[in-house]
Write a protein that binds this DNA or RNA. Structure first.
Lengths: 277, 277
DNA sequence: CGGTTTGGGGTACGGTGTACTCAGTTCGCT
DNA sequence: AGCGAACTGAGTACACCGTACCCCAAACCG
């Protein structure tokens, strides 16, 4: 997934002459924020960045990120493979663009839910709950999101808008600015970790063609021998429903997290009251 | 990274004749729990599974999971590439073995810390804190851990031992069994998500050769223009230290999480007391 | 000692990202 | 109107990857 690095950067340096790696980011930024004015000489482009990104996302959603290759996209779009490089500096940048597109897009209408996004609620608990569920929904809709390096995501307009909305909703907590960011990071980290586990499980089913049940059944003899060995007394004494799928780990964890924030907010308001007297 | 799937499973079926995918798991299980008795006909093996896994981990630690290829490992070990397939069914299984090895190994001695693992403390807060820090340490030492599908990790002896120790330490919380698992999953998810963000950042520095500062500087003009546009009032009003690196997001989030658990434990003990009266 | 079983390794195939090169199109300027 | 510049599209080629297949040498059993 990650490009080779050695061949990539050195090759870019020999070709372009710009500082290796730096030129690509500038190029990505222009692609994201750019005015889109195209030079007025030469033939009109037969493709759009938008179409490429859309096609890439469609393929990734349907068959996983591994299916997204330049050759595959070109056949999908009916062009030559190398033509894509007229619009995108490289595959890494294409992945960046996919990220920004998906993270910022409003959730598509679902049958059970009203389409319009309601304004930010003044209750931060509800806001956090919405943040987490929305993010989890997004990650489940696009499982490949977690396989793309998010650190160097160029902060596109849509990503900024999401952060802005979150911050506005959390303002009522009365925490300091870095703590607000901490809240967001904590919630997002929890959701990401959970989504990764779930996504891995689904991917494993798809790739091996083996259901979860079959998988665990294949391990059962080894596990039972281990339990009988006496080396794992705690695990051997666990109740039957311990690993049941009925338990909603997302709801459980999120509830605990919000309860933890509640404690901090209560402390702060108590402090403020003490200062006032 | 993930193997092709179509070629992999079908090829395994044509070669071996066993149910596609199922044979590999059985093979992995035997590799993990197996007795290691080798047949006494034919030449002695010049390699060990252990040496292969060790070499793979070394390469992954030093240069990232992308550098772990069968050809690379073979040159590292001084053998032919295809010889490796006498010991490992395929690359996917090798990754599984790397996982189990690393997740179960005791942390190597570090200068500042005593080497012996102390017995499980009876205070579950300390236990959770230790769980989280240990896991985070592990993920930082081996950033490639998060790029391997953990869902179908064969539960090896070392993985079981870790789970057993965690459960023993959390027993004093007095929660139901599924909730105990929920606690572990929640903490681990949080740590994984955070580690992923940190790992992505380091990887980005290594790959692009661009420090974080340089990266953000390159975005500054676009961000400033966005701030001045008035479309992001909350973000524009943030204090200077909001995104400072001084703030320890790991400590902050973990503290909130533990506080949230505390609330639940308190509720339970209160309920128990009410029942007793 | 002959046969059988096993490990080691070479070759080859289909896949990937992408550098390089050349042909063809379209506009601005003279 | 014509020409040259600037641009797009596409083909070819290279270095990687995982691994199927095949053959040979080594080691034990009878």
């Amino acid at each position: 997934m990650a490009k080779d690095g050695s061949t990539g950067s050195t090759a870019a340096a020999t070709t372009d002459g710009t500082t290796p790696g730096g030129g690509d980011i500038a190029r990505s930024l222009e692609l994201l924020w750019g005015t889109g004015d195209r030079p007025s000489r030469g033939p009109k482009p037969g493709l759009t960045l938008d179409r490429i990104v859309t096609a890439a996302i469609a393929v990734a959603d349907a068959e996983g990120l591994a299916a997204v290759s330049m050759r595959r996209l070109s056949t999908e779009l009916g062009t030559g493979t190398m033509s894509l490089y007229r619009y995108v500096p490289g595959k890494a940048e294409l992945l960046d663009l996919m990220l920004d597109r998906v993270l910022g897009e409003p959730l598509p209408d679902e049958p059970g839910r009203p389409a319009a996004a309601p304004p930010a609620p003044d209750d931060w608990r509800v806001a956090i709950n919405r943040m987490a569920t929305t993010y989890l929904d997004n990650l489940r809709r696009h499982p490949w999101l977690l396989k793309i390096n998010q650190a160097r995501t160029v902060l596109g307009p849509s990503a900024l808008r999401g952060l802005e909305l979150s911050l506005a909703a959390l303002r009522s907590m009365g925490l300091r600015d870095p703590e607000l960011i901490g809240v967001i990071i904590t919630v997002n980290s929890f959701v990401e970790g959970l989504a990764r586990t779930q996504g891995d499980a689904e991917e494993a089913v798809a790739q091996t063609g083996l259901s979860d049940e079959e998988f665990w059944d294949s391990q059962r003899p080894y596990l039972e021998r281990a339990m009988l060995s006496g080396a794992y007394p705690m695990m051997a004494s666990m109740s039957e429903d311990t690993f049941s799928a009925d338990f909603d780990h997302f709801a459980f964890g999120l509830e605990r997290l919000i309860a933890g924030f509640e404690v901090l907010v209560a402390e702060r308001t108590a402090d403020a009251a003490a200062d006032r007297t």
